[in-house]
Design a protein around this nucleic acid. Sequence first.
DNA 1: ATCATATCTTAACTTTAGTGAACGAATAGC
DNA 2: GCTATTCGTTCACTAAAGTTAAGATATGAT
Lengths: 190, 190
Amino acid sequence: MQQLLFDFISKYISLTDDEKNVLLSLNLFHSVKKGTILLREGQKTNNSYFVLKGCIRSYYLIDGEERTTAFYTEMEAMTPACALSNTPSDYYVSCLEDTMLTISNSDMTEEVNGKFPKFDIMCRMFSAEMLAKQRIDFDEFKTSSPEQRYLNLLQKRPDLLQRVPQHQLASYLGITPQSLSRLRSRLVKK
Amino acid sequence: MQQLLFDFISKYISLTDDEKNVLLSLNLFHSVKKGTILLREGQKTNNSYFVLKGCIRSYYLIDGEERTTAFYTEMEAMTPACALSNTPSDYYVSCLEDTMLTISNSDMTEEVNGKFPKFDIMCRMFSAEMLAKQRIDFDEFKTSSPEQRYLNLLQKRPDLLQRVPQHQLASYLGITPQSLSRLRSRLVKK
DNA sequence: ATCATATCTTAACTTTAGTGAACGAATAGC
DNA sequence: GCTATTCGTTCACTAAAGTTAAGATATGAT
């Protein structure tokens, strides 16, 4: 499991055994049961998450309805906005499946990055890459119809359609569950 | 004009005169006329832009139609996705107004960050902050109707409604110019 | 295994967005 | 200043999404 993290890091920087041991001493790795809520609306945290195996999901509670905005699966990272702004969270984060992940907080990041400046470089590269990827996702969302967005998801993350309940996918696509159901039956007829 | 950049940087790190001089030696500052296209579809670049005064806009050309996805105004930065992936750009970037901006490339970033590691820290902080902001924008977009998105824009960036042509705002809101026009007259009647 | 709950689908109806076309108004180029 | 183009609005029509409700299926808890 730890090797998964090291493999990921090696895409950006190379680690000495010494550096690996510092990471291992931090007690980063956690196993979380399906349904566990990692972060609640109104709660403060400065945790960051990195999914090694499984899936976590962020959602807002609007008029009593869950509105799912993101899924994070294998080798994806999330830092809740509230962790940076130090304000109460606007949304929930929960585990969709039994999940293995790392949980780190800003103190740990400060400490490690202070000790090994190359971690700053990695974080910079990784953040910039995430920012660009998310920008493209946003652009595609804006320039597509719900149907195109569904077909796009089918292409890009077919696994999600298997592992995620329909109604969560719907709000992820920016539509109601009924519309998604209708849209799908429309596509089958074609 | 240079002071604007230093003021911005000072939100993250403090600069010595030496460091400031290195930045000034890089010939970062440019004045660009309205309508100038900074980046074309199909073109490669590794430039990054930081707007000091004015406004730049990114847009796709889909079926001969411009689809605007972002506006960058005072104290906002953009690095085109193609600059990181080193692939041809999928979109255009052009100046909506006469604009003062800094243009840097990845070589310059490497050089400066190599010399002064604290720039890595700044970039890391800034990227993480941008990522969180953009995530929130995306979430709001997903969980809102076109009408709510318009009202939200009115609240958050009222300046854009003054300085940007209606049809560009429309695609920024993910709708057609006709729909925006209709939506606005619907709101007036209320 | 049973019951309660959650999930997915379907349907009828309402509301809103997309489309194509037409029209003045504003803008830019000559 | 005049003309051509672009821009914003309106209209009629079509297509799709939201809403409310109902029924069927699947899931989870005891």
